[in-house]
Amino acid sequence: MKVLVPVKRVIDYNVKARVKPDQTGVDLANVKMSMNPFCEIAVEEAVRLKEKGAATEVVAVSIGPTQAQETLRTALAMGADRAILVQTDQDLEPLAVAKVLKAVIAEESPELVLMGKQAIDGDNNATGQMLAALLDWPQATFASAVEIAGSKAKVTREVDGGLQTIEVDLPAVVTADLRLNEPRYASLPNIMKAKKKPLDVKELGSLGVDTAPRLKVVKVTEPAKRQAGIKVETAADLVSNLKTAGVL
């Protein structure tokens, strides 16, 4: 079974995003960039499937600028076999990303697409579901456990109030939630080995996909700030303040 793992280069999750003064977006100049944490979990799961013998090949794919090659090298160092960069400087919306991935899938024919449930920049939580829709494949989102049995995947999903388990026929799209696994750190020998693994670069234009934006960004602003309140000395003070505030 071939597994395709889309990965995104985003602002590092430890860095606080700052809005540009001209309100056109978030300032990414000289900011540390890393693989989206949910994508890391997806890579880890794909590599574990290969280690268990359930997968034969893990292909990482990213859509982005030249620097996204670093993100793909991280995936290769974690254990992916080869990588594809669809190169573009455009910032694509989830629907466009799903269409590009569909074109890559037409060439690669994976039996499983394993990807993060959301990217921590746009926070849309949409691309995996959209890809499944465009391919007319089943989807299993927010996975906290994945088990492959023959031509089916049994997936436990995090839902409101608990867990749901579903079974999907392959090929399918599975999106990873936080507790699916804890991604490994790539070892130095594996980082060295990753430099020699194949990384194929395609221009976005060569795929013939309509990636025109559907949304125009009007502005990006800072969220409303909360004023810090007061410090109270004792639990009794706290209770009397809460009574005065009318919330008890």
Partner: peptide, 19 residues
């Protein structure tokens, strides 16, 4: 035109849809 949070709520994005 709609506003929604991005970057874990550290920014609010207002977008206009052409769909």
């Amino acid at each position: 035109t709609f506003t929604h949070p991005i970057y874990a709520g550290n920014a609010m994005e207002t977008v206009q849809s052409a769909d």
